[in-house]
Amino acid sequence: MTITDTASVVRSADGTSIALFREGAGPAIILIDPALSTHRGSARLARALAGQFTVLSFDRRGRGGSGDEHPATADQGREIEDIAALIEAAGGHAVLFGTSSGAALALEAATRLGDRVTGLIAYEPPFICDDARPPLANDLPARVAASVERGDRSQAVKTFFTEAIGVPAFGVAIMRMLPLWRHAKAIAHTLRYDFAVLEGTQQGMPLPLERWAGLTAPTIVLIGSKSEAFFHHTAAALADGLPTVEYESLEGAHHGSPEMSPGRIADRIIARFGA
């Protein structure tokens, strides 16, 4: 059985059903996916970690096999409650690994959930803390939400990829021909959660470090050496401003590595947090 075969269900505090997939044995690690992704995006990383960890992969609320009892809201606190329920299902303690907006969510969860989180690896949180890349437009979340509301999910996904991620027009044209475009459209309504967890961190201003002042878990902000400079600047700012945070650059890795080529990431996680 692989991690993508059969889900169990965990109930979050508001009654939302969260689809959970387990693999492996050892200390628990929870994988938190980025925007427009389900647990299937973490499958390779899960397999690479399963020899050392009990890997818990899940569909964030509103995605894949998970429900959402509050489909008209975008409260990051709900997603943190989801992670708390997963930690409870794991035995009360877990390491968190998050990618991109999932890394931002993991950082928020680790701050709020205290010693239930025994370690954190935040892979490339997409905060913009200086002029290394243009800030996101303040009205971007509203425009994406408006596209979803009027039923134009393709436009919502296009706007997100071009403005938030920086995919050029020819890249979007290629993506439209791939299955990932259909999958992205199916969960475009959940982008509101990604924007909510990133609120106040993508305007090119110094990071609101007080937001994570309660973080006690040993934390690595991991950045691929091939990734854009703004990711590295963010990691350095977090490491400089928060006492439990380390910044590491992983040679040869890039923003898509957790899904496409996670071997080195898994090795680093095992070395730092394995049994």
Rank of each mutant, 00 (worst) to 15 (best):
A169P: 00
A271T: 13
A74W: 11
M260F: 13
D59Q: 05
E228S: 11
P179I: 03
A50I: 05
I83F: 08
V95W: 02
V144Q: 06
I128K: 11
R63M: 05
E199N: 13
P27G: 04
F21Y: 15
F273D: 08
A253P: 03
F21D: 02
G166I: 04
T118R: 15
R61P: 07
T16V: 06
G15H: 03
G204N: 10
R11D: 03
F161G: 00
L120P: 14
Q203G: 15
A164F: 14
A217S: 14
S8R: 12
A46P: 02
G171H: 08
P126A: 05
I32D: 14
S8I: 07
P141C: 06
H39V: 01
D131H: 15
I269A: 02
R268V: 04
A35G: 12
L178F: 03
G224K: 03
A137Y: 10
Q155H: 07
Q76D: 06
A213G: 07
A142S: 10
G24K: 05
A7R: 13
A104E: 10
Y123L: 09
R268G: 02
L120W: 13
A188F: 09
Q76K: 12
I128H: 09
P258W: 10
R60F: 03
P126N: 08
E88Q: 08
T73A: 14
D131E: 15
A186L: 01
E69W: 00
P258F: 10
P141Y: 12
E259H: 11
E81A: 13
A173V: 01
R11P: 01
I187L: 01
P208L: 09
A104Q: 13
V95G: 00
P258V: 07
A145F: 07
V117R: 12
T244M: 15
I223C: 09
C129H: 13
S257M: 02
V157S: 03
A104N: 07
G65E: 05
Q52E: 15
K185W: 00
P71F: 06
R61I: 07
H233N: 15
R143P: 07
A50Y: 05
V167A: 05
I265Y: 03
L222N: 09
M1Y: 08
R268S: 03
M205V: 09
T6R: 14
V9R: 10
E23L: 14
I269M: 15
E81H: 07
G263K: 06
V55W: 09
L180G: 00
T201D: 02
T2K: 06
R176W: 01
L198Q: 14
L242H: 12
P135E: 10
L36M: 13
V55N: 02
A156D: 02
L113M: 08
A145M: 08
E124A: 05
E124Y: 13
V167N: 00
S37Q: 14
S12P: 12
E23P: 00
D131Y: 11
D14E: 07
G64W: 11
A74M: 06
H93D: 04
D59Y: 08
T190M: 05
I128W: 12
L49D: 06
G166E: 03
G51H: 05
D115G: 04
D5Q: 13
P258L: 04
A48F: 04
M175K: 04
P168A: 01
A217K: 11
A132Q: 15
F230S: 02
D152W: 14
I270C: 03
F231E: 02
L250W: 12
G274Q: 06
L242G: 06
D152R: 13
E228G: 05
G64S: 07
A50D: 13
L36P: 10
Q202V: 15
R264F: 01
S37W: 04
